[in-house]
Computed example of a mutant assay.
Amino acid sequence: MRRIGLFLLTNLAVILVLGVVLRLLGVDRVLDESGSGLNYTNLLIFAAVFGFGGSFISLAMSKWMAKRSTGAEVITQPRNETERWLLATVQRQAEKLGIKMPEVAIFHSPDPNAFATGMTKNSSLVAVSTGLLQHMNADEVEAVLGHEMAHVANGDMVTLALVQGVVNTFVIFVARIVGHTVDRVVFKNEEGHGIAYFVTSILAEIVLGILATMIVAWVSRQREFRADAGGAALAGRMKMIAALERLRAAHPQPLPGEMAAFGISGIRMDGIKKLFSTHPPLEQRIEALKSQTH
């Protein structure tokens, strides 16, 4: 639950800090119409610029952040047979998918894990842990690489950034409308924005931010099923099932910080916490693959 809290707080903090800074700078005043009402067009543009801006800045920095947080080392010149095999396998999968060869990296972790990130499908990074290479055989690693390459080919990083941008825009837009309404209707403030607007809009951002996180997490879970199917198409359905079975038995720890959402297995959650999970349970993913008829 602590990791979920950190994830939520990080996303909410971005919106809240931005909102406070903009209010202190007086930027919110451009949203007024003669001091008595909101200019909804200006408000929507304002919300979209900052909602999508933050999301795509994070996307643009994703490879740098991933390398820094995990210590992933990009393979430029293979030093052994394992690294040569990794490069050859990813190259073969990239050609099959019709995308450019991504950077391939290894990061030190005893847990079997892998992730893919990057701003576009032709400028991406695929990384595997040392624990993955030690605990899985070649067929299972091939399937994991196929899963990550499917994420890249499907443009999942961009898709999630777009979804995050939409919900961020919604949060900023609706929170200010709620704050404005309470300020005018409940506290009868007829000019400018008073303290009620400030407090109410922040509270609305917190509540809406939690709901927004649930939406993004749901979209992410659907993309995981699709990436599993993509990995099965590239490496073989039984190899993909075997890789997920291996992960289920290993109970790997999630990746550090915000990178947890990018790991192949995600964080196991129960009860209401499932609503904030970026990955479906491994049991569901395995069953989905077993139920495929082709």
Rank of each mutant, 00 (worst) to 15 (best):
G5Q: 02
G5V: 08
L9Y: 05
N11E: 06
N11P: 01
L12M: 09
L12I: 13
G19F: 02
L22Q: 14
G26H: 10
V30R: 14
L43S: 14
L44V: 15
A48E: 13
A48I: 12
A48L: 14
V49L: 15
F50G: 03
F50P: 03
G51N: 14
G53I: 10
G53L: 10
G54H: 11
S55Y: 11
M61L: 13
M61N: 11
S62K: 11
K63P: 09
K63Q: 15
A66W: 11
K67C: 10
S69D: 14
T70N: 10
P78Y: 08
E81T: 15
W85E: 13
W85A: 12
L86E: 08
A88S: 15
Q93K: 12
Q93D: 14
Q93T: 09
K96M: 07
K100G: 06
P102L: 00
V104C: 03
A105Y: 05
H108E: 10
S109K: 06
N113Q: 13
K121L: 03
N122M: 02
N122L: 00
S123F: 03
S124V: 02
V126S: 02
A127V: 08
L133M: 08
Q134W: 00
Q134S: 12
H135D: 08
E142L: 00
E142M: 02
A143Q: 07
A143E: 03
A143L: 04
M149F: 00
M149Y: 03
V152S: 02
A153E: 00
G155K: 07
M157N: 12
M157T: 14
G165Y: 03
V166C: 14
T169K: 13
T169Q: 07
V171R: 03
I172F: 12
I172K: 03
A175W: 01
H180S: 13
T181E: 05
D183S: 08
V185M: 08
V186G: 11
F187T: 15
G192W: 08
Y197E: 11
Y197P: 05
T200Y: 02
S201T: 12
L203E: 02
I206Q: 01
G209N: 01
G209K: 04
I210K: 06
L211Y: 12
L211T: 11
I215D: 02
V216S: 15
A217D: 09
V219Y: 13
R221M: 10
Q222R: 10
R223N: 15
A227D: 01
D228K: 06
A229V: 09
A232R: 02
L234H: 04
L234Y: 04
R237I: 01
K239H: 13
A242I: 00
A242N: 14
E245G: 10
E245M: 08
R246G: 09
A250H: 01
A250E: 10
P252N: 08
P254F: 05
L255F: 06
L255Y: 09
L255R: 04
P256T: 09
A260H: 09
S265Y: 03
G271C: 01
G271L: 00
G271A: 05
K273Q: 08
L282P: 06
Q284I: 01
I286S: 09
E287D: 12
E287M: 05
S291Q: 14
T293L: 04
H294R: 13
